[in-house]
Design a protein around this nucleic acid. Structure first.
Lengths: 148, 148
DNA sequence: AATGTAATTAACGTTAACGTAAACCTGTAC
DNA sequence: GTACAGGTTTACGTTAACGTTAATTACATT
């Protein structure tokens, strides 16, 4: 359905004195450079629940914020399931100590993973240095005619 | 088949004066804390080719080293396919000038990728720092009773 | 009326890296 | 002489995060 955000449509969800902006799925998709399919998938996983106009999804600011948080979580290396548990906690008991500590625990975990990756990368880099040095040496010898 | 590494079996692959150690699949699996299934899978993907005693796989030191490299590559986020191309490059014509040049080019590429990954990880870490700091602050305020 | 654009649901496809039977063989130990 | 421990192949199952049709609906424009 086109024109979800046209003036005519918006009459259904807000009036002249209540103009919270709404978004169609395509708009959000473009804004965050993802596909509508992804957004529907997030909903299917229980990460969002936009309202409807007829059968069309209508997103409010809170939904947009949620989407932003989902993507941010993904960038941080959280799975959708992990993001969902955070959301669920926030939904049932916002800003509780329990929730904050859960968040801290998760970030600690990710930090450990990242630390391991850093060490591995540094090890591989020195190994690359080795391989490269040996390559250059063999090449030099080849060109000096010492081999072949 | 049990006892691949028994003295009797080893007669087939080495004598009193040539004692390169051999490993059964289960030994390597335990040593690196993976399953035999994984090791067979790596072979299926062309990453290793252990010798056989009858139908049983027998691993030499070079195979063990390969396995170690595979696992390190995985920890670094390389796919098995990527690890394989690296192996293939090293295996084919290790001494030709052309191959050496190609290898150098490849290591340069990998180095660039690793550098990018390093930067990404560092960015993620600072983002995690941010999130964590805000969490701790909110927690502190909670405990000071400033928020119910 | 026809065309175009955006939306919907349903459901199967994809990729990587294995997990998990099932059915078999076989040397070693009790 | 049989049970066990470990090995074998073959092949289908699993997970995450979507991609990709397909078939349909509905509004907007020409």
């Amino acid at each position: 359905m086109a024109g979800v955000n046209s003036a005519k449509d918006k009459v259904h969800v807000m009036n002249k004195y209540d103009k919270e902006p709404t978004y169609a799925i395509g708009e959000l998709a473009r804004e965050f450079d993802i596909t509508p399919r992804s957004i529907r998938f997030y909903e299917e996983q229980g990460l969002m629940s936009p309202t409807r106009t007829g059968q069309n999804r209508v997103y409010l600011n809170k939904d947009r914020v949620r989407l932003k948080l989902i993507l941010r979580g993904k960038r941080l290396g959280f799975s959708l399931a992990e993001v969902k548990t955070l959301f669920d906690m926030y939904d049932t008991n916002p800003n509780s100590a329990v929730q904050l500590e859960a968040m801290l625990e998760m970030t600690e975990q990710k930090r450990a993973v990242l630390k391991q990756q850093l060490e591995d990368i540094q090890m591989l880099m020195t190994e690359l240095d080795d391989v490269e040095a040996r390559c250059r040496e063999e090449l030099a010898e080849l060109k000096r005619g010492k081999i072949a």
